[in-house]
Design a binder for these strands. Structure first.
Lengths: 201, 201
DNA sequence: TTGTCATCTGTCATGGACTGACATAATCTA
DNA sequence: TAGATTATGTCAGTCCATGACAGATGACAA
């Protein structure tokens, strides 16, 4: 990796960190692009060469996490039922975060706090999840061998499950991967309890 | 109702209609507030006295529909199980639209086309649904006698069901209330099939 | 009818998000 | 080191959104 590429990556991370800190400190709405750019000693115009919008920088960690999830999903064995594969991929993604750089972990949890505290960003996260849902649907349809209403329902149920699991996190749990894991497991268990056997086949 | 109030209502509807027509004609992004205001012969500043944002005018019909739904939900007998009450309220809301002014129907379907065609607005609709979900959750918790994870799951499942039902609509079905109804019933039937008996109790 | 009050509206000025165009500066490559 | 690529800064401009103020309009009582 050349110097140019390394520098770009460094600037990108610096922008994310500066933005998240400012968002947490003085709120998302009252933080300007100029402030973020100034904190990294970069022109405001350059900010927009790294991120398409103010929202995008706040959601960057969430976007990265989704990529990890999709990669985990891709690695699941084809024998697993659709929902099992999705749940396992989610566990895998959480594990990647747990065993990764502490720096990345802190950044992710900071981003989650910003998301929780800012309705606009929260809606943006929904948009992200919906975009992701299209790709998840493909995987579900592949495993079920049918791209029908039922595949859509399985996919939507997974999205809901994750959402309920995450929303349920209190502030303390939000700053702790293990708390997040527990919430997630509780919700998966509930799905198991309320669905008829083989519902996702 | 006085003249002043009637005038305000008329301006509001005119703004919505002008906005929807422009959005459909030339796209949401490339339509400016100035254009909408000019079409109704009103100053741009006045637009923002009726709607808090450009997005809000596009979602006005959806917001009104949600209010109808909540009102229907409020009228459901307390003996119904949570999900049954929600499904019946949805049927009621669709019926209100079907039996209402043709003008209102056309506006609603136009708005739905705009929502489908515009990612930003689509995300906004999600935000609306989530805000609504809080009130739906209260009703579910009341009927189940418990504000717990399971109530949240029932609520989220309902939201997913509606979402899947609506997303599944093709363009022809989108311009037809009956097609919309059929999709919805198919999805409700699927929930009935995949959930264990009494899952929402 | 008229005068007063509340409310609605237009105008103006401003700030902040975002974009295109162009010149400069930094890296890369031969 | 020269020349090609790519990143960055500067500048100008559009659009969304909001506050402040003044003028217009409907509401209402005497």
């Amino acid at each position: 990796m050349g110097l140019r590429e390394r520098k770009k990556l460094k600037t990108r991370v610096a922008l994310i960190d500066a933005a998240l800190d400012l968002f947490l400190e003085q709120g998302y709405e009252s933080t300007t692009i100029d402030q973020i750019a100034a904190a990294v000693d970069v022109s405001p115009r350059t900010f927009f060469r790294y991120f398409g919008s103010k929202e995008e920088v706040a959601l960057a960690p969430a976007t990265d996490a989704q990529d990890v999830f999709l990669s985990e999903l891709h690695d699941r064995p084809g024998t697993e039922s659709p929902f099992t594969a999705l749940a396992q991929a989610m566990r895998g993604a959480v594990a990647v975060l747990r065993d990764g750089e502490p720096e990345d972990k802190r950044r992710f949890l900071k981003a989650r706090q910003v998301v929780e505290a800012t309705p606009t960003i929260f809606a943006g996260q929904m948009r992200l999840m919906l975009a992701n849902e299209q790709r998840i649907l493909e995987e579900v349809a592949r495993r079920r061998g049918a791209d029908d209403l039922r595949s859509q329902f399985v996919t939507a149920t997974f999205t809901s499950t994750i959402r309920v699991g995450l929303e349920n996190c209190t502030l303390e749990e939000l700053s702790d991967i293990d708390g997040l894991t527990r919430r997630l497991e509780d919700t998966f268990a509930l799905v198991d309890e309320l669905m008829v056997a083989g519902w996702d086949r």
